[in-house]
Design a protein around this nucleic acid. Structure first.
Length: 428
RNA sequence: GGGGGUUUGCCCGAGUGGUUAAAGGGGGCGGACUGUAAAUCCGCUGGCUAUGCCUACACAGGUUCGAAUCCUGUAGCCCCCA
């Protein structure tokens, strides 16, 4: 039996941005297990933070006793959702799209339970759209879409007013998503669609279509977008999006991203993205208030997220990497660990033989690693006490690096200043 | 077209014949402190085969034992007259 407090839960977490029929939805949810769907855009072969938020939403529904459907937009992804986009989107190739759908589907298995009574369903709208002929679609679906109403949608209007304009293809996107809802209702009894607040227009379009085609009353629920206090989308770094795929964003980088969330944003992240309970949430909120320097909330967020998305091992390696990156002893690292920690650090490759004989002069090494632009600069840095080999400060201007200085099989870690690193690789 | 002024290091800005690689500030870089923050404080801030050498004050040439500093020419910028 569904838990009655799902709405309360979503509500204290601030996850309810808009609902089509508050009372109706509450009544529906209380009446028995429901099916909810959220669509995911297969724009890449991995989810990022935005998608995670939606996934958590489905997870919350599932935990409350409902059945989630994660709909991967194999068909809609071919068109491109204009909502919230300022420009016409580039179309993806069919192969790329398939690879993306597979990648995203794989990741979802971690967050949703695909077994049991309320087993989650993973569907791809390409399955029902691919055979749908254009003519039939226009007769069945297009007929129910007054252009006037479509023109009124925010997503369409903003694009029409902009310079970029809007192609017919993107204009039609809404019909496809609307039809998905109808299809899922018909085939799977799905009466609720959730999504980010940018999906409001698409969701209500689906509700309208459901009323016309099926005579069904469908419901919609949107969550706020995850933005920073200064209004930018979360989950972006200078180096690009924060991905769930450890190959794209290492657990360490992932952990770091959350640790660095601004005080003003951290509680919102915890509310939106984690399953940390209200009591602890309140506790963390008051700690952030009274002792922001400790950043208890950030650390808890990072810890929770990393463990949840990358498991115990991921968390452990993130912690170790953090310790090393912030100047801790390097000890017995492996090439693998070091290249993960220093993924964004410039590295250069030198002949192994440079370490033989006399060894490699530190002044040269710093230049090789890109940490000094000239030998004068390198000497100066050493004199200033700002040079570290494998995180140990050095002071000898004439130091020569030899094999024993390797931190791992083939890498020496040089550092200038607090955390400006440069790697030297000496492949065997 | 004529007259006057100006041009300095990453940026701004002193310097007007001799410790001037060039005051001061900004920036940058180190260090201390700190919340993997901000502020603050301290040091460094042309290059090199480095206790010395080389290149630098728009560019080229000249005067001088010696010039960023004086002279001539060229270029850029600014102002005034036509």
């Amino acid at each position: 039996m569904p838990e009655a407090n799902l709405i309360d839960e979503l509500s204290w977490r601030g996850l309810i941005h808009q609902q089509t029929d508050e009372a109706g939805l509450a009544k529906l949810l209380a009446s028995g297990p429901q099916t909810v769907y959220i669509g995911f855009d297969p724009t890449a072969d991995s989810l990022h933070v935005g998608g995670l938020m939606q996934l958590m939403m489905l997870r919350r529904f599932q935990k409350a006793g409902h059945r989630p459907i994660a709909l991967v937009g194999g068909a809609t992804g071919m068109i491109g959702d204009p909502s919230g986009k300022s420009e016409e989107r580039n179309l993806l190739s069919a192969e790329q799209l398939q690879a993306n759908v597979d990648g995203v589907a794989q990741q979802m298995r971690r967050f949703l339970d695909f077994e049991g009574d309320q087993a989650a369903l993973l569907l791809n709208n390409f399955q029902w759209m691919q055979g749908y002929s254009y003519l039939e679609f226009l007769r069945d679906v297009g007929k129910s879409f007054p252009v006037g109403a479509m023109m009124g949608k925010e997503s369409v209007r903003s694009r029409l007013d902009s310079e970029a304009g809007l192609s017919y293809t993107e204009f039609s996107y809404m019909l496809l998503q609307a039809y998905d809802f109808v299809h899922l209702c018909k085939e799977h009894g799905c009466k609720i669609q959730a999504g980010g607040s940018d999906q409001w227009g698409n969701i209500t379009a689906g509700i309208d279509l459901g009323r016309r085609m099926l005579g069904e009353q469908l419901f919609g629920l949107t969550a706020p977008l995850l933005t920073t206090s200064d209004g930018r989308k979360m989950g972006k770094t200078e180096r690009g999006a924060v991905w769930l795929d450890p190959a794209r964003t290492s657990p360490y980088a992932f952990y770091q991203y959350w640790v660095n969330v601004a005080d003003a944003d951290v509680m919102r992240c915890i509310a939106y993205l984690t399953e940390i309970e209200k009591a602890e949430y309140d506790e963390l909120a008051s700690q952030t208030e009274s002792d922001p320097g400790r950043r208890a909330a950030q650390k808890r967020l990072a810890q929770w997220m990393t463990e949840f998305c990358h498991g115990d091992d991921g968390l452990e390696s993130a912690m170790k990497a953090t310790q090393i990156f912030f100047g801790g002893e390097i000890g017995d690292a492996t090439d693998q660990q070091l290249s993960e920690i220093f993924a964004d650090v410039p590295s250069s490759e030198l002949e192994r033989s440079a370490l033989g004989g006399e060894g490699l002069w530190i002044v040269e090494a710093l230049q090789n690693a890109g940490l000094a632009g000239s030998s004068s600069e390198a000497r100066r840095a050493i004199k200033d006490g700002g040079v570290y080999v494998n995180n140990e400060r050095i002071s000898d201007m004439n130091l020569k690096l030899t094999e024993p200085d390797l931190a791992s099989e083939t890498v020496i870690v040089l550092r200038k200043g607090k955390r400006k690193y440069g790697l030297l690789r000496f492949p065997k």
